[in-house]
Design a binder for these strands. Sequence first.
DNA 1: CGTTCGTTTGAATCCCATCAATTGTGGTGG
DNA 2: CCACCACAATTGATGGGATTCAAACGAACG
Lengths: 198, 198
Amino acid sequence: MVREGQRTTDCSLLLKGFAFRQKLLRNGNRQIISIHIPTEFVDLQNGLLGVADHNVQSLDGSEAAIIPRSALIDLSNARPAIRTAMWIDTLLDASIFREWVVNVGRRDSRARIAHLLCELVVRLKNNGDGRDGVFDFPLTQEQLADATGLTAVHTNRTLQSLRRDGLIQLSARSLSVLDWDRLSEVADFDELYLHQNI
Amino acid sequence: MVREGQRTTDCSLLLKGFAFRQKLLRNGNRQIISIHIPTEFVDLQNGLLGVADHNVQSLDGSEAAIIPRSALIDLSNARPAIRTAMWIDTLLDASIFREWVVNVGRRDSRARIAHLLCELVVRLKNNGDGRDGVFDFPLTQEQLADATGLTAVHTNRTLQSLRRDGLIQLSARSLSVLDWDRLSEVADFDELYLHQNI
DNA sequence: CGTTCGTTTGAATCCCATCAATTGTGGTGG
DNA sequence: CCACCACAATTGATGGGATTCAAACGAACG
Protein backbone atom coordinates (compact mmCIF):
# COMPACT_ATOMS: atom_id res chain seq x y z
CA MET A 1 0.00 0.00 0.00
CA VAL A 2 1.29 3.40 -1.02
CA ARG A 3 0.88 6.20 1.51
CA GLU A 4 0.59 9.91 0.89
CA GLY A 5 3.84 11.84 1.08
CA GLN A 6 5.93 8.72 0.67
CA ARG A 7 8.57 8.53 -1.99
CA THR A 8 7.34 6.09 -4.58
CA THR A 9 9.27 3.30 -6.21
CA ASP A 10 6.76 1.07 -8.00
CA CYS A 11 3.66 0.76 -10.10
CA SER A 12 1.39 -2.22 -10.20
CA LEU A 13 -0.73 -3.99 -12.73
CA LEU A 14 -3.93 -5.34 -11.23
CA LEU A 15 -4.53 -9.02 -11.95
CA LYS A 16 -7.50 -9.92 -9.77
CA GLY A 17 -9.99 -8.06 -7.61
CA PHE A 18 -10.50 -4.32 -7.34
CA ALA A 19 -8.19 -1.61 -6.02
CA PHE A 20 -8.79 2.00 -5.02
CA ARG A 21 -6.96 5.23 -4.97
CA GLN A 22 -8.05 7.43 -2.12
CA LYS A 23 -7.27 10.62 -0.26
CA LEU A 24 -7.82 11.02 3.45
CA LEU A 25 -8.89 14.31 5.00
CA ARG A 26 -7.57 15.62 8.28
CA ASN A 27 -10.92 15.01 9.92
CA GLY A 28 -10.74 11.34 8.99
CA ASN A 29 -13.11 11.47 6.04
CA ARG A 30 -12.15 9.57 2.94
CA GLN A 31 -12.71 10.20 -0.74
CA ILE A 32 -12.09 7.40 -3.19
CA ILE A 33 -10.78 9.04 -6.33
CA SER A 34 -10.59 6.03 -8.60
CA ILE A 35 -11.52 2.39 -8.76
CA HIS A 36 -9.39 -0.04 -10.70
CA ILE A 37 -10.44 -3.33 -12.19
CA PRO A 38 -8.26 -6.23 -13.35
CA THR A 39 -5.91 -5.64 -16.31
CA GLU A 40 -5.57 -1.97 -15.43
CA PHE A 41 -2.48 -0.08 -14.37
CA VAL A 42 -2.79 1.29 -10.88
CA ASP A 43 -1.04 4.48 -10.24
CA LEU A 44 1.30 5.24 -13.04
CA GLN A 45 0.86 8.77 -11.67
CA ASN A 46 2.21 8.30 -8.18
CA GLY A 47 4.89 6.10 -9.67
CA LEU A 48 6.15 8.79 -11.99
CA LEU A 49 5.75 12.00 -10.04
CA GLY A 50 8.06 10.62 -7.39
CA VAL A 51 6.06 11.76 -4.36
CA ALA A 52 2.65 10.27 -3.70
CA ASP A 53 -0.17 12.77 -3.28
CA HIS A 54 -2.66 10.03 -2.52
CA ASN A 55 -2.63 6.41 -1.45
CA VAL A 56 -3.61 3.10 -2.92
CA GLN A 57 -5.57 0.35 -1.27
CA SER A 58 -6.26 -3.15 -2.49
CA LEU A 59 -9.27 -5.17 -1.55
CA ASP A 60 -8.90 -8.54 0.13
CA GLY A 61 -8.25 -11.21 -2.41
CA SER A 62 -6.87 -8.92 -5.06
CA GLU A 63 -3.56 -9.68 -6.73
CA ALA A 64 -1.19 -7.39 -8.58
CA ALA A 65 2.08 -7.53 -10.44
CA ILE A 66 4.59 -5.03 -9.07
CA ILE A 67 6.71 -3.15 -11.58
CA PRO A 68 9.70 -1.11 -10.39
CA ARG A 69 9.56 2.53 -11.37
CA SER A 70 13.00 2.45 -12.94
CA ALA A 71 11.95 -0.38 -15.23
CA LEU A 72 8.98 1.66 -16.43
CA ILE A 73 11.12 4.68 -17.11
CA ASP A 74 13.72 2.64 -19.00
CA LEU A 75 10.99 1.00 -21.00
CA SER A 76 9.37 4.28 -21.89
CA ASN A 77 12.69 5.71 -23.01
CA ALA A 78 13.57 2.71 -25.13
CA ARG A 79 10.22 2.00 -26.73
CA PRO A 80 8.22 4.89 -28.18
CA ALA A 81 5.14 2.71 -28.57
CA ILE A 82 5.09 1.92 -24.88
CA ARG A 83 5.71 5.54 -24.06
CA THR A 84 2.68 6.47 -26.11
CA ALA A 85 0.60 3.81 -24.42
CA MET A 86 1.53 5.09 -20.97
CA TRP A 87 0.80 8.59 -22.09
CA ILE A 88 -2.64 7.60 -23.27
CA ASP A 89 -3.27 5.66 -20.09
CA THR A 90 -2.54 8.81 -18.12
CA LEU A 91 -4.79 10.93 -20.32
CA LEU A 92 -7.63 8.45 -19.96
CA ASP A 93 -7.15 8.46 -16.21
CA ALA A 94 -7.40 12.23 -16.21
CA SER A 95 -10.53 12.10 -18.34
CA ILE A 96 -12.17 9.82 -15.80
CA PHE A 97 -11.16 12.18 -12.99
CA ARG A 98 -12.85 15.03 -14.84
CA GLU A 99 -16.06 13.08 -15.11
CA TRP A 100 -15.86 12.21 -11.43
CA VAL A 101 -15.62 15.90 -10.58
CA VAL A 102 -18.86 16.37 -12.50
CA ASN A 103 -20.38 13.35 -10.82
CA VAL A 104 -19.84 14.44 -7.25
CA GLY A 105 -20.25 18.11 -8.08
CA ARG A 106 -23.43 18.28 -10.08
CA ARG A 107 -25.46 15.08 -9.90
CA ASP A 108 -27.91 14.11 -7.18
CA SER A 109 -27.50 10.87 -5.28
CA ARG A 110 -29.46 8.63 -7.67
CA ALA A 111 -27.58 9.89 -10.71
CA ARG A 112 -24.26 9.67 -8.91
CA ILE A 113 -24.62 6.05 -7.93
CA ALA A 114 -26.14 5.14 -11.28
CA HIS A 115 -23.30 6.86 -13.10
CA LEU A 116 -20.64 5.02 -11.15
CA LEU A 117 -22.36 1.72 -11.88
CA CYS A 118 -22.63 2.56 -15.59
CA GLU A 119 -18.95 3.43 -15.78
CA LEU A 120 -17.85 0.25 -14.06
CA VAL A 121 -20.12 -1.91 -16.19
CA VAL A 122 -18.73 -0.45 -19.40
CA ARG A 123 -15.16 -0.90 -18.23
CA LEU A 124 -15.80 -4.45 -17.03
CA LYS A 125 -17.55 -5.37 -20.27
CA ASN A 126 -14.57 -4.02 -22.16
CA ASN A 127 -12.48 -6.57 -20.31
CA GLY A 128 -14.79 -9.36 -21.33
CA ASP A 129 -16.14 -9.73 -17.78
CA GLY A 130 -19.77 -10.21 -16.85
CA ARG A 131 -21.15 -13.23 -18.63
CA ASP A 132 -24.97 -13.12 -18.79
CA GLY A 133 -24.91 -9.52 -17.70
CA VAL A 134 -23.91 -10.44 -14.15
CA PHE A 135 -20.78 -8.80 -12.81
CA ASP A 136 -18.59 -9.54 -9.82
CA PHE A 137 -18.98 -6.41 -7.75
CA PRO A 138 -16.91 -6.48 -4.58
CA LEU A 139 -17.60 -2.91 -3.40
CA THR A 140 -19.32 -2.39 -0.08
CA GLN A 141 -21.90 0.34 0.34
CA GLU A 142 -19.44 2.28 2.45
CA GLN A 143 -16.92 2.22 -0.39
CA LEU A 144 -19.58 3.26 -2.88
CA ALA A 145 -20.35 6.12 -0.53
CA ASP A 146 -16.73 7.22 -0.32
CA ALA A 147 -16.49 7.12 -4.10
CA THR A 148 -19.62 9.21 -4.65
CA GLY A 149 -19.25 11.69 -1.82
CA LEU A 150 -22.34 10.43 0.01
CA THR A 151 -22.80 8.76 3.38
CA ALA A 152 -23.18 5.01 3.64
CA VAL A 153 -26.74 5.43 4.87
CA HIS A 154 -27.76 7.57 1.96
CA THR A 155 -26.03 5.22 -0.43
CA ASN A 156 -28.21 2.47 0.97
CA ARG A 157 -31.36 4.57 0.50
CA THR A 158 -30.33 5.32 -3.06
CA LEU A 159 -29.56 1.71 -3.95
CA GLN A 160 -32.95 0.72 -2.55
CA SER A 161 -34.55 3.26 -4.80
CA LEU A 162 -32.69 2.01 -7.88
CA ARG A 163 -33.72 -1.53 -7.01
CA ARG A 164 -37.33 -0.53 -6.35
CA ASP A 165 -37.46 1.00 -9.83
CA GLY A 166 -36.23 -2.20 -11.38
CA LEU A 167 -33.01 -0.71 -12.72
CA ILE A 168 -30.45 -2.92 -11.02
CA GLN A 169 -30.01 -5.98 -8.90
CA LEU A 170 -27.17 -5.82 -6.41
CA SER A 171 -26.51 -8.30 -3.66
CA ALA A 172 -23.94 -10.78 -2.46
CA ARG A 173 -21.14 -9.05 -4.29
CA SER A 174 -22.82 -9.37 -7.63
CA LEU A 175 -24.39 -6.73 -9.85
CA SER A 176 -26.73 -7.04 -12.78
CA VAL A 177 -28.23 -4.23 -14.76
CA LEU A 178 -31.91 -4.92 -15.43
CA ASP A 179 -32.62 -1.90 -17.61
CA TRP A 180 -29.55 -0.31 -19.16
CA ASP A 181 -31.44 2.35 -21.05
CA ARG A 182 -33.24 3.74 -18.06
CA LEU A 183 -30.20 3.38 -15.81
CA SER A 184 -27.96 5.33 -18.15
CA GLU A 185 -30.68 7.94 -18.54
CA VAL A 186 -30.99 8.34 -14.77
CA ALA A 187 -27.18 8.53 -14.65
CA ASP A 188 -26.93 11.12 -17.39
CA PHE A 189 -24.30 8.73 -18.73
CA ASP A 190 -22.38 9.36 -21.93
CA GLU A 191 -19.44 7.06 -22.41
CA LEU A 192 -17.52 9.48 -24.63
CA TYR A 193 -15.20 10.30 -21.74
CA LEU A 194 -14.01 6.70 -21.53
CA HIS A 195 -12.44 7.04 -24.99
CA GLN A 196 -12.98 3.34 -25.64
CA ASN A 197 -12.18 3.68 -29.33
CA ILE A 198 -8.53 4.60 -28.89
CA MET B 1 -13.81 27.71 -27.74
CA VAL B 2 -13.55 23.94 -27.92
CA ARG B 3 -16.80 21.98 -27.82
CA GLU B 4 -17.39 18.49 -26.52
CA GLY B 5 -17.30 15.77 -29.16
CA GLN B 6 -15.45 17.96 -31.62
CA ARG B 7 -12.26 16.80 -33.22
CA THR B 8 -9.51 18.89 -31.75
CA THR B 9 -6.70 20.63 -33.57
CA ASP B 10 -5.06 23.04 -31.17
CA CYS B 11 -3.82 23.80 -27.69
CA SER B 12 -3.43 27.20 -26.19
CA LEU B 13 -1.13 28.93 -23.79
CA LEU B 14 -2.93 31.45 -21.63
CA LEU B 15 -1.37 34.89 -21.63
CA LYS B 16 -3.86 37.08 -19.80
CA GLY B 17 -7.05 36.54 -17.81
CA PHE B 18 -8.54 33.26 -16.64
CA ALA B 19 -9.95 30.34 -18.63
CA PHE B 20 -12.09 27.36 -17.63
CA ARG B 21 -12.60 23.85 -18.66
CA GLN B 22 -16.15 22.72 -18.11
CA LYS B 23 -18.58 19.93 -18.76
CA LEU B 24 -22.27 20.49 -19.40
CA LEU B 25 -24.95 18.08 -18.22
CA ARG B 26 -28.00 17.18 -20.24
CA ASN B 27 -30.20 19.09 -17.81
CA GLY B 28 -28.21 22.23 -18.46
CA ASN B 29 -26.16 22.20 -15.28
CA ARG B 30 -22.50 23.02 -15.56
CA GLN B 31 -19.46 21.83 -13.69
CA ILE B 32 -16.22 23.71 -14.05
CA ILE B 33 -13.45 21.13 -13.86
CA SER B 34 -10.46 23.40 -13.93
CA ILE B 35 -9.46 27.02 -13.81
CA HIS B 36 -6.41 28.25 -15.65
CA ILE B 37 -4.35 31.29 -14.91
CA PRO B 38 -1.87 33.09 -17.14
CA THR B 39 1.31 31.23 -18.20
CA GLU B 40 -0.49 27.89 -18.02
CA PHE B 41 -1.21 25.48 -20.80
CA VAL B 42 -4.91 25.01 -21.37
CA ASP B 43 -5.97 21.68 -22.54
CA LEU B 44 -3.01 19.67 -23.60
CA GLN B 45 -5.43 16.80 -22.90
CA ASN B 46 -8.15 17.58 -25.38
CA GLY B 47 -5.44 18.53 -27.82
CA LEU B 48 -3.76 15.16 -27.66
CA LEU B 49 -6.61 12.69 -27.22
CA GLY B 50 -8.05 13.87 -30.52
CA VAL B 51 -11.68 14.02 -29.42
CA ALA B 52 -12.74 16.55 -26.84
CA ASP B 53 -14.60 15.16 -23.83
CA HIS B 54 -15.13 18.60 -22.37
CA ASN B 55 -15.02 22.18 -23.53
CA VAL B 56 -12.98 25.26 -22.86
CA GLN B 57 -14.19 28.73 -22.18
CA SER B 58 -12.22 31.93 -21.88
CA LEU B 59 -13.29 34.90 -19.89
CA ASP B 60 -13.77 38.26 -21.51
CA GLY B 61 -10.48 40.04 -21.83
CA SER B 62 -8.33 36.96 -21.73
CA GLU B 63 -5.70 36.34 -24.38
CA ALA B 64 -4.07 33.14 -25.46
CA ALA B 65 -1.46 31.91 -27.90
CA ILE B 66 -2.82 29.16 -30.12
CA ILE B 67 -0.52 26.25 -30.85
CA PRO B 68 -1.45 23.73 -33.55
CA ARG B 69 -1.65 20.18 -32.35
CA SER B 70 0.72 18.91 -35.01
CA ALA B 71 3.38 21.37 -33.89
CA LEU B 72 3.13 20.10 -30.34
CA ILE B 73 3.45 16.51 -31.44
CA ASP B 74 6.45 17.26 -33.64
CA LEU B 75 8.05 19.17 -30.82
CA SER B 76 7.50 16.39 -28.34
CA ASN B 77 9.00 13.86 -30.72
CA ALA B 78 12.05 15.96 -31.48
CA ARG B 79 12.83 17.28 -28.01
CA PRO B 80 12.78 14.84 -25.10
CA ALA B 81 13.00 17.67 -22.58
CA ILE B 82 9.83 19.21 -23.93
CA ARG B 83 8.18 15.85 -23.99
CA THR B 84 9.00 15.41 -20.33
CA ALA B 85 7.69 18.86 -19.52
CA MET B 86 4.40 18.11 -21.26
CA TRP B 87 4.20 14.81 -19.46
CA ILE B 88 4.68 16.50 -16.11
CA ASP B 89 2.14 19.16 -16.98
CA THR B 90 -0.38 16.41 -17.61
CA LEU B 91 0.43 14.64 -14.37
CA LEU B 92 0.08 17.86 -12.42
CA ASP B 93 -3.25 18.51 -14.08
CA ALA B 94 -4.42 15.07 -13.03
CA SER B 95 -3.24 15.65 -9.49
CA ILE B 96 -5.33 18.80 -9.31
CA PHE B 97 -8.35 16.91 -10.66
CA ARG B 98 -7.93 14.36 -7.90
CA GLU B 99 -7.93 17.06 -5.27
CA TRP B 100 -11.04 18.59 -6.85
CA VAL B 101 -12.83 15.27 -6.56
CA VAL B 102 -12.04 15.35 -2.86
CA ASN B 103 -13.10 18.98 -2.64
CA VAL B 104 -16.57 18.56 -4.09
CA GLY B 105 -16.98 15.07 -2.65
CA ARG B 106 -16.03 15.43 0.98
CA ARG B 107 -15.80 19.03 2.07
CA ASP B 108 -18.64 21.25 3.24
CA SER B 109 -19.34 24.55 1.53
CA ARG B 110 -16.99 26.70 3.63
CA ALA B 111 -14.08 24.31 3.21
CA ARG B 112 -14.79 23.94 -0.50
CA ILE B 113 -14.72 27.63 -1.27
CA ALA B 114 -11.77 28.21 1.05
CA HIS B 115 -9.85 25.39 -0.59
CA LEU B 116 -10.42 26.73 -4.07
CA LEU B 117 -9.22 30.15 -2.96
CA CYS B 118 -6.13 28.67 -1.31
CA GLU B 119 -5.25 26.74 -4.44
CA LEU B 120 -5.61 29.73 -6.71
CA VAL B 121 -3.62 31.96 -4.39
CA VAL B 122 -0.73 29.49 -4.28
CA ARG B 123 -0.73 29.12 -8.04
CA LEU B 124 -0.96 32.86 -8.62
CA LYS B 125 1.84 33.53 -6.15
CA ASN B 126 3.96 31.00 -7.97
CA ASN B 127 3.56 33.14 -11.06
CA GLY B 128 4.71 36.18 -9.21
CA ASP B 129 1.21 37.70 -9.18
CA GLY B 130 -0.44 39.36 -6.26
CA ARG B 131 1.69 42.24 -5.10
CA ASP B 132 0.85 43.22 -1.50
CA GLY B 133 -1.19 40.08 -1.12
CA VAL B 134 -3.92 41.42 -3.40
CA PHE B 135 -4.85 39.29 -6.37
CA ASP B 136 -6.79 39.94 -9.54
CA PHE B 137 -9.71 37.63 -9.21
CA PRO B 138 -12.11 37.75 -12.16
CA LEU B 139 -14.42 34.89 -11.14
CA THR B 140 -18.09 35.59 -10.56
CA GLN B 141 -19.93 33.90 -7.72
CA GLU B 142 -21.79 31.81 -10.26
CA GLN B 143 -18.51 30.54 -11.65
CA LEU B 144 -17.22 29.83 -8.17
CA ALA B 145 -20.42 27.90 -7.61
CA ASP B 146 -20.01 25.86 -10.77
CA ALA B 147 -16.43 25.07 -9.77
CA THR B 148 -17.34 23.91 -6.27
CA GLY B 149 -20.60 22.10 -7.00
CA LEU B 150 -22.71 24.58 -5.05
CA THR B 151 -25.43 27.01 -6.07
CA ALA B 152 -24.69 30.66 -6.60
CA VAL B 153 -26.88 31.58 -3.64
CA HIS B 154 -25.09 29.25 -1.31
CA THR B 155 -21.74 30.42 -2.60
CA ASN B 156 -22.80 33.92 -1.69
CA ARG B 157 -23.79 32.81 1.83
CA THR B 158 -20.48 31.03 2.22
CA LEU B 159 -18.40 33.96 1.01
CA GLN B 160 -20.27 36.19 3.46
CA SER B 161 -19.37 33.82 6.22
CA LEU B 162 -15.68 33.76 5.26
CA ARG B 163 -15.69 37.54 5.15
CA ARG B 164 -17.53 37.83 8.48
CA ASP B 165 -14.84 35.68 10.08
CA GLY B 166 -12.12 37.97 8.78
CA LEU B 167 -10.49 35.37 6.58
CA ILE B 168 -10.73 37.03 3.19
CA GLN B 169 -11.66 40.19 1.43
CA LEU B 170 -13.26 39.78 -1.97
CA SER B 171 -14.86 42.49 -4.01
CA ALA B 172 -14.54 44.34 -7.29
CA ARG B 173 -12.64 41.48 -8.90
CA SER B 174 -9.93 41.53 -6.32
CA LEU B 175 -9.12 39.07 -3.58
CA SER B 176 -6.94 39.38 -0.54
CA VAL B 177 -6.35 36.79 2.11
CA LEU B 178 -6.48 38.37 5.56
CA ASP B 179 -5.56 35.30 7.59
CA TRP B 180 -3.81 32.59 5.61
CA ASP B 181 -3.34 30.25 8.54
CA ARG B 182 -6.99 30.14 9.50
CA LEU B 183 -8.15 30.07 5.88
CA SER B 184 -6.00 27.08 5.03
CA GLU B 185 -7.11 25.39 8.21
CA VAL B 186 -10.78 25.90 7.33
CA ALA B 187 -9.95 24.63 3.85
CA ASP B 188 -8.11 21.56 5.08
CA PHE B 189 -5.49 22.74 2.59
CA ASP B 190 -2.23 20.89 2.02
CA GLU B 191 -0.33 22.07 -1.02
CA LEU B 192 1.48 18.77 -1.53
CA TYR B 193 -0.81 17.96 -4.45
CA LEU B 194 0.37 21.02 -6.37
CA HIS B 195 3.86 19.48 -6.60
CA GLN B 196 5.39 22.94 -6.71
CA ASN B 197 8.90 21.62 -6.18
CA ILE B 198 9.17 19.78 -9.47
C1' DC C 1 -3.36 -36.21 24.26
C1' DG C 2 -5.09 -34.63 20.16
C1' DT C 3 -8.94 -34.22 17.13
C1' DT C 4 -13.55 -33.02 16.01
C1' DC C 5 -17.57 -30.65 16.40
C1' DG C 6 -20.70 -27.37 18.23
C1' DT C 7 -21.16 -22.85 20.52
C1' DT C 8 -19.97 -18.22 21.44
C1' DT C 9 -18.26 -14.07 20.15
C1' DG C 10 -17.18 -10.25 17.44
C1' DA C 11 -16.51 -7.89 13.19
C1' DA C 12 -18.56 -6.57 8.88
C1' DT C 13 -22.25 -5.55 6.16
C1' DC C 14 -26.77 -4.27 5.16
C1' DC C 15 -31.24 -2.30 6.29
C1' DC C 16 -34.49 0.93 8.35
C1' DA C 17 -36.58 4.94 10.84
C1' DT C 18 -36.28 9.49 12.91
C1' DC C 19 -34.59 13.99 13.46
C1' DA C 20 -31.34 17.69 12.35
C1' DA C 21 -28.41 20.29 9.37
C1' DT C 22 -27.00 21.74 5.06
C1' DT C 23 -28.03 23.15 0.72
C1' DG C 24 -31.27 24.38 -3.07
C1' DT C 25 -35.33 27.19 -5.05
C1' DG C 26 -37.74 31.12 -6.11
C1' DG C 27 -38.19 35.73 -5.55
C1' DT C 28 -36.99 40.86 -4.57
C1' DG C 29 -34.10 44.74 -4.75
C1' DG C 30 -29.64 47.34 -5.20
C1' DC D 1 -23.65 40.64 -10.80
C1' DC D 2 -24.25 40.80 -5.89
C1' DA D 3 -26.96 40.58 -1.61
C1' DC D 4 -30.66 38.96 1.02
C1' DC D 5 -34.96 36.48 2.54
C1' DA D 6 -38.38 32.67 3.34
C1' DC D 7 -39.39 28.20 2.45
C1' DA D 8 -38.59 23.49 0.60
C1' DA D 9 -35.89 19.52 -0.52
C1' DT D 10 -32.01 16.76 -0.11
C1' DT D 11 -28.73 14.77 2.49
C1' DG D 12 -26.40 13.79 6.94
C1' DA D 13 -26.30 11.98 11.82
C1' DT D 14 -27.66 8.85 15.07
C1' DG D 15 -29.28 4.68 16.85
C1' DG D 16 -31.31 0.41 16.40
C1' DG D 17 -31.62 -4.37 14.57
C1' DA D 18 -30.81 -8.51 11.30
C1' DT D 19 -27.63 -11.35 8.86
C1' DT D 20 -23.42 -13.53 7.63
C1' DC D 21 -18.90 -15.15 8.32
C1' DA D 22 -14.88 -16.48 10.53
C1' DA D 23 -12.12 -16.79 14.62
C1' DA D 24 -11.82 -18.41 19.29
C1' DC D 25 -13.13 -21.50 22.56
C1' DG D 26 -14.49 -25.56 25.05
C1' DA D 27 -16.54 -30.14 25.62
C1' DA D 28 -16.94 -34.77 24.06
C1' DC D 29 -14.88 -38.44 21.75
C1' DG D 30 -11.32 -41.35 19.62
